[in-house]
Design a protein around this nucleic acid. Structure first.
Length: 565
DNA sequence: CTGAATTGTCATCGG
DNA sequence: TACCGATGACAATTC
């Protein structure tokens, strides 16, 4: 009885996991109606690196394969083929054994109904989405008086095994859903257990829970996972699957819990990584003296390679420079922090009038190639050659860096007494730029220079983006070539193997035909000559003995050949 | 010193 | 029409 109970429970757990995963991530209706549609829509998503040109939307979405941007059809073809492969792999879903045992442990825990205070706390920490009313319970548990609540939670835990017992006694669908509810609640326990580790609850108990959780989840590969589980899952009727999928709230809730629990660690890592990034971004800047930042001037003022920031440049400019213009409209923001040595009223005005775009937004939406090393480079980088070698202090006897290494446009701007840096000229929005041209009383020469500086700066960025894109395209094509080469080799091997098999089968058929014909007799009682007769298998499955036809075509061919000769 | 690689710039096209 | 990005081509610079 216990074995059967466990078997059914495990099967239902697996089914629930299966439905949760499918229900959350795959639209079954869409799959039933159109096989590729949902995935192709994924392919058209905003994950592409080139967002500004429509055909780029079909590129670089899944495996990193890329085709030349001028061949969107080819790219679409490859993308579809990759999607087909992925769909095929999805056809045989596999679930991590670790996950299965993780949940099985929960059933057994609830089945025993008394696991000690740790299990009790598991129940109490359940503040999952499907039990919003548990929040009050959870809040009440934060009260200093924990003993009474422990008693109270024991009662709640004892409620859980009831549906499981009922499940064993009958096999109605309603109870299958019922156990799914119970299981999902238990999954929520662990989820809450993990996520609430940092809250104000009893740390000792929480650590015990975590230790228990880790122990059982890691030792699950050889326990509690019987082959019958998979069989039981497969043996379940699809009708029940469909019915269960209708219970959106339950299975989706469980799916959510699963997702959260499984990816909890990943999320934490991601957050930690983001914190690290923030520290990397902000740390050096906060500790850097503004004057030093000012001295770290780019030699060209537009050199992306050494001082680029891409999306980060807005932030860097905002921090390190008193006023630098950024531009996310073109997706090619890539200017480093540069402070023009000519303070002006206009700079202050623009610093106040135009705020740089949100850094986070730029990070996620700006796919400009001008920022490939966003997280790899410090915000304030040194211009190529010279800056690192040159002392940055005023003790340097040589000429000042910004005098020596200013770009030509920067020098021209200074010569024309233009109170804006190249960065500002290039990065300011067009409206602001037009206002500058109109509102500062610049001479025609100054206006021309301003326009040239802006044009050259933007074109420089565009050229860098273009080159980067070209290199990426070449790399993608090389990878595609390698992949196709490997595929070709595999197909050639399969072809040879198939030919070999076909030859063997042909020999077997010949031998079988000889044997059969040797046992047959003609009208005179002689065995049939295999050279003159053959066996033909008709469409209806009948095997008929037919005389071998000497193709007359050969004779005509011979005649034709003879005529030609 | 030479050649390759890199970078800046111009011209042009299309959106 | 102006603006802007993409890109081929060329020259200057760097390695």
């Amino acid at each position: 009885m216990q074995i059967a109970k466990k078997y059914v429970s495990e099967s239902l757990i697996q089914l629930t996991i299966f439905l949760s995963l499918i229900g959350v991530r795959v639209d079954i209706d869409s799959y039933l109606s159109g096989y590729y549609t949902p995935l192709i829509e994924i392919n058209l998503g905003p994950s592409t690196a080139y967002t500004q040109t429509p055909f780029h939307n079909l590129r670089d979405t899944l495996d990193g394969y890329s085709v030349h941007p001028k061949c969107p059809e080819l790219d679409y073809f490859f993308a579809s083929r990759r999607l087909l492969d992925e769909v095929r792999t999805l056809g045989s879903p596999r679930f991590p054994i670790q996950l299965n045992a993780w949940l099985v442990h929960q059933v057994s825990a609830t089945d025993k109904a008394n696991r000690g205070p740790s299990t009790d706390n598991n129940t109490d920490t359940n503040d999952g989405p499907e039990n919003p009313g548990d929040e009050a319970r959870d809040d009440a548990e934060h009260l200093p008086d924990g003993g009474q609540h422990e008693d109270g939670t024991k009662v709640k835990v004892e409620e859980v095994p009831t549906p499981i017992t009922q499940l064993v006694q009958s096999s109605t669908l309603e109870q299958e859903v019922y156990i799914a509810t119970a299981i999902s609640r238990d999954v929520n326990l662990h989820d809450a257990m993990i996520t609430s580790a940092g809250r104000g609850e009893s740390r000792q108990v929480t650590q015990q829970q975590r230790a228990l959780f880790r122990l059982e989840s890691t030792s699950s590969s050889h326990t509690d996972v019987s082959p019958g589980m998979a069989v039981g899952l497969a043996a379940l009727p699809f009708a029940s699957v469909c019915n269960l999928t209708g219970n959106v709230s339950q299975h989706s809730a469980m799916g959510g819990c699963l997702d959260e629990a499984v990816f909890e660690h990943i999320n934490q890592l991601g957050l930690e990584a983001m914190d690290t990034v923030d520290n990397q971004l902000m740390g050096p800047l906060e500790s850097r003296d503004p004057q030093v930042l000012e001295d770290l001037d780019s030699d060209s003022g537009l050199s992306l390679e050494t001082s680029s920031g891409g999306p980060v440049s807005p932030g860097s400019s905002e921090i390190s420079s008193s006023s630098s213009y950024c531009e996310d409209e073109c997706g090619a923001t890539g200017y480093s922090s540069e402070v023009d040595s000519v303070p002006s009223k206009g700079i202050v005005e623009y610093a106040a009038a135009w705020s740089p775009p949100d850094l986070s937004e730029s990070v996620w939406h700006d796919h400009s190639y001008s920022s490939p090393t966003f997280f790899d480079q410090p915000l304030v980088t040194l211009p190529h050659k010279g800056i690192k070698e040159e002392p940055l202090s005023d003790e340097d006897d040589g000429p000042r860096l910004d005098d020596r290494e200013l770009s030509r446009d920067e020098l021209r701007a200074r010569a024309m007494c233009i109170p804006f840096s190249v960065l500002q000229i290039v990065n300011m929005p067009v409206e602001e730029f037009l206002e500058v041209l109109d509102g500062h009383g610049f001479s025609p020469e100054q206006v021309t220079l301003l326009r040239d500086i802006r044009r050259r700066g933007k074109n420089k960025l565009a050229a860098q983006n273009c080159r980067k894109r070209k290199l990426d395209a070449i790399t993608g094509l090389q990878e595609e070539v390698e992949r196709l080469r490997a595929q070709r080799d595999r197909l050639v091997r399969e072809k040879h193997l198939t030919a070999k098999t076909m030859g063997a089968v042909g020999q077997q058929i010949k031998q079988l035909t000889r044997d059969i014909l040797a046992r047959l007799r003609d009208d005179s009682g002689h065995p049939l000559n295999p050279e003159r007769f053959t066996l033909q298998c008709g469409a209806n499955g009948r095997v008929v003995v037919q005389p071998v036809r000497r193709p007359a075509v050969n004779k005509t061919d011979k005649r034709k050949k003879e005529k030609k000769q």
